[in-house]
Write a protein that binds this DNA or RNA. Structure first.
Lengths: 118, 118
DNA sequence: CAGTATCCGGAGCGATACTG
DNA sequence: CAGTATCGCTCCGGATACTG
């Protein structure tokens, strides 16, 4: 891994990591990559508080990972959709998901050993 | 992406993500994957505060991603080394790094557009 | 329904001082 | 050298209440 620029706070990898590294972003990314969803559906599915959900969706939109579709019904209906960029990122995250499922056992075992030694 | 279990806080992907999603873990992982390093060298290379560096290294060790080698010199010498598990994870993160370098332009452009509209 | 506004507690991180 | 201990600030996230 070329990491010279990792020391730069503006390094692409750090920027992306900082963006997806909060509690809910990846989860919403994955959810939306399965299909469009409305605000309340996302809230129900995830259990996120309204404030944080709104916040996270706004950032997703700002970064170009999701888009908003507003239907002028009464009351208003809003759908969130993943963008091609967001779908591409979700696809890439798949590698990390596979790694996690394969190796989580090893990680948890290491933690147990470590804690037992202490 | 099979995300049914993403809603479970104990889902492997969330566990791993939560562990590497802090400010310094990935950077240390990458650094150590290039070769063993001593505490003070890591401190100099990264600019992390002593407290947070010690904290982060301890977690890396607990998760089985790094190991400590203590040499009984005076004063004591300590080297940190990446483990096979840690090296494997660093390798996987390479995919995310590549994605970041390829698409960071699109992300920053999206942010500019979004901010300009507001 | 789809948000915004406000308050609050806890975690993360840095700076500083101290120790074997 | 390789840490630990303490303080203080900031930001994140949750709970609650309110609005077009």
């Amino acid at each position: 891994m070329d990491c010279g620029d990792l020391f730069n706070p503006d390094c692409p990898t750090r920027l992306v990591l900082d963006r997806i590294a909060d509690k809910w972003t990846v989860m919403l990314l994955v959810l939306l990559s399965q299909g469009p969803m409305r605000f309340s559906a996302l809230k129900r599915a995830t259990g996120i508080s309204q404030k944080v959900l709104a916040q996270t969706l706004k950032r997703l939109e700002r970064d170009g990972f999701a888009s908003r579709a507003v239907f002028p019904t009464v009351p208003v209906t809003v759908e969130y959709l993943i963008t091609p960029l967001g779908a591409d990122l979700a696809q890439t995250l798949e590698g990390l998901r596979l790694w996690s499922e394969r190796h989580i056992g090893a990680v948890l075992a290491a933690q147990r050993d470590y804690d037992a030694a202490a």
